[in-house]
């Protein structure tokens, strides 16, 4: 018994050491981003990046919120934040629902030509987006969505990538649950909403996180669709923060840090669901 617990102690020690070292590697750019956002302009560039804001002249460690103040009161930034919230707030749930609905059918409900249709859908992922850009903008214009926030929502309301991911997860769910429900006379929609969705929390969380991040950070689509500055989204406002010629990382990083906060919140909320393992009953292996 004593030997066993010693083994477990060693094991956890090694594990945590490894995790901690990797974590430092992963976190340092983020820390640098935050620390740079707290620096004054002159202290940003050093031969070796400093993890704390250090005054070059006096050598003191300090922190300033001036960059945040500038970025936040800067005209358009607050509106951009709001626009991004609206777009992400509508598009992420909409997309999640449509993708899950489709993914479920592709995984579980047979209909003629289903798998061929799925492969056709999948093949659209293989064409580089740059080639599709202009015809897409054109369609968006024809639909009357050009230069509007709906133009950022409707053309982004489905993701084949997510359909594929969800389908793969629905494939792992045991069929017995659905079959039992069907015998009880439940409809497919009820099965989908009451059985499948609750069981799929981990993957739904993954999709929510990743599609939120994707929409939150997307620059190219808003760039080509939106002309009116009052409809600019956060990535556009961020790109406009620093000129191509005078590079000001402390401002960029303050803006980027603010833009990261909603992502972190979404991640912190949903990541918990990823590990909440569900105990299934009646599984056959």
């Amino acid at each position: 018994m004593a030997r066993l617990s010693k083994y477990w102690l060693c094991r956890s020690l090694v594990l945590y050491m490894a995790l901690l070292i990797i974590a430092i590697l992963m976190v340092s750019p983020f820390v640098w981003m935050i620390s740079t956002s707290l620096k004054n302009g002159p202290d940003v560039f050093t031969p070796i990046p400093t993890l704390f804001p250090i005054n070059k002249k006096t050598g003191d460690i300090y922190a300033t919120l001036e960059n945040y103040r500038y970025v936040l009161i800067k005209k358009g930034f607050a509106i951009a934040f709001f626009n991004s919230l609206i777009v992400a707030g509508i598009v992420v749930p909409l997309k999640l629902f449509l993708d899950a609905l489709g993914g479920y059918a592709f995984a579980r409900i047979p209909f003629p030509g289903r798998d061929k249709l799925f492969l056709l859908l999948l093949s659209s992922m293989m064409i580089p987006g740059i080639a599709l850009l202009i015809p897409r903008v054109y369609v968006t214009k024809v639909l009357g969505l050009y230069d509007s926030l709906w133009g950022l929502i409707i053309p982004m309301s489905v993701s084949v990538f997510d359909v594929f991911l969800l389908r793969q997860f629905f494939l792992t769910l045991p069929r017995e649950l659905e079959e039992a429900a069907m015998i009880d006379g439940a409809s497919r929609l009820r099965i989908f909403i009451q059985i499948i969705l609750p069981l799929s929390r981990p993957v739904l969380a993954v999709v929510t996180i990743t599609s939120f991040i994707w929409h939150w950070n997307d620059l190219i689509w808003p760039l080509v669709i939106i002309n009116t500055p009052s409809r600019y989204t956060l990535p556009l406002a961020l790109a406009l923060l620093t000129s191509g010629q005078s590079h000001k990382p402390h401002l960029t990083m303050a803006g980027a840090a603010i833009a990261t906060i909603p992502i972190l919140i979404v991640f912190l909320i949903f990541q918990k669901r990823i590990l909440k393992g569900i105990t299934l009953t009646g599984l056959k292996m």
């Binding site: 620059l219 002309n227 406009l240 000129s243 191509g244 010629q245």
Partner: peptide, 19 residues
């Protein structure tokens, strides 16, 4: 209408392409 310099030509050409 301010446009990020690095993406200016991309936006301009697409806008011209769709009129």
């Amino acid at each position: 209408i301010p446009i990020p310099k690095g993406d200016f030509n991309t936006k301009l050409n697409i806008a011209i392409a769709v009129g």
